[in-house]
């Protein structure tokens, strides 16, 4: 049993270390790309069914022709694909465990759109990630001349790593997928890792101050309080909001259904890391989540930003890959 309390799918004999396949392309297909790296350069994500919602998203695709894992990063309110997760591309390149993982950094209009709409779009993208990753997500994003992934290839594991509002969006999307009859193997492939999630609500003035980059300034929360009126999407993130109450109810109901059916529910229970100095989000436990030890010396914004001295986010992901 893995440390997160759920079982990992067995795709190879116990004890055999997985090695990534040889680099995907012969040297003459990518003369100007390094073939001694496990991933292609960070590039724009070209989702075939995007209607302008995730258009600034980025992806770092594995050179492995059939990677087992996808890691999807979802930023929070006011964040962005690369600014929020800035150090992760570099860190993941150095992780042996991530060599056969495709990485996606989603970018979406978090400040202008309700949680429901964000979740609706995320749901569609996740469906393609589960059922048609090659055709609808990966092949158009690969460097020119790269052998496309096969139609039948699927991810064995999909990690959804989210910060703040991103956790709410991801949860909502998964619960909606669950109600739309997600298959059991598909549900079992999903895992959640959340940093400073806002799924129990947040202090809106502090959320706005943090999301708009004002937190270094005095009077930030006063500014945040005044700014709340300009961002209608925030209503969903307030403690006790209809959206969050519904999220909790639906999560409990979904877990009850799984329990009755004796089915796994790891995709409904997130691994959560809160920051000790976080003044933004309510840190009460959501449903049956797994609460890891809080992160010391970090606040809401910096919890998801590893650096040379702060490796916890990388380590938490690494030990689960």
């Amino acid at each position: 049993m893995a440390k997160d309390g759920v079982s990992k799918p067995r795709h190879r004999p116990r004890g055999q270390r997985h090695k990534p396949e040889a680099p995907a392309a012969p040297a003459d297909e990518h003369p100007d790309l390094r073939d001694d790296l496990s991933h292609f350069p960070l590039a724009s994500l070209r989702w075939r069914r995007d209607e302008g919602f995730f258009s600034s998203s980025q992806t770092m695709l594995s050179r492995d022709r059939a990677p087992r894992t996808a890691i999807v990063f979802v930023h929070g309110w006011g964040g962005s694909a690369l600014a929020t997760w800035e150090a992760f591309p570099s860190a993941l390149r150095e992780l042996r465990e991530a060599a056969d993982a495709d990485v996606f950094f989603l970018d979406y209009p978090s400040t202008k759109t309700s949680v429901a709409v964000c979740a609706g779009e995320a749901r569609e993208l996740l469906l393609d990630l589960l059922r048609a990753p090659g055709k609808n997500l990966v092949n158009a994003s690969l460097p020119d001349g790269t052998t496309p992934r096969s139609e039948g290839w699927r991810y064995a594991r999909i990690w959804l790593v989210a910060h703040s509002m991103g956790a709410v969006v991801v949860r909502r999307a998964l619960l909606d997928l669950d109600r739309a009859a997600l298959g059991a193997p598909e549900a079992e492939s999903l895992r959640l890792l959340f940093f400073a999630p806002a799924h129990r609500g947040s202090s809106l003035p502090h959320l706005v101050a943090s999301g708009l980059g004002l937190e270094w300034l005095p009077g930030a929360s006063l500014a945040g309080r005044a700014l709340v009126t300009y961002y209608r999407s925030l209503a969903d993130l307030e403690q006790g909001s209809t959206a969050l109450n519904l999220l909790l109810e639906d999560s409990k109901a979904a877990r009850e259904r799984r329990k009755a059916a004796r089915a796994a529910d790891a995709d409904l229970r997130a691994i959560v890391l809160h920051a000790r100095d976080d003044k933004v989000v309510v840190q009460d436990r959501f449903d049956d989540d797994i609460e890891e030890r809080p992160i010391a010396y970090r606040n809401h914004r910096s919890a998801s930003k590893p650096d040379e001295s702060y490796r916890r986010p990388i380590d938490e992901l690494r030990k689960r890959l």
């Binding site: 390094r34 962005s80 150090a87 570099s90 150095e94």
Partner: peptide
């Protein structure tokens, strides 16, 4: 020779530059 850190650092610098220009 490959210096992963330098490579990744430049990649991030590109992302930063893009975010400013965008």
């Amino acid at each position: 020779p490959l210096d992963q850190r330098a490579y990744a650092n430049f990649e991030s610098y590109l992302g930063l530059t893009r975010s400013v220009f965008d």
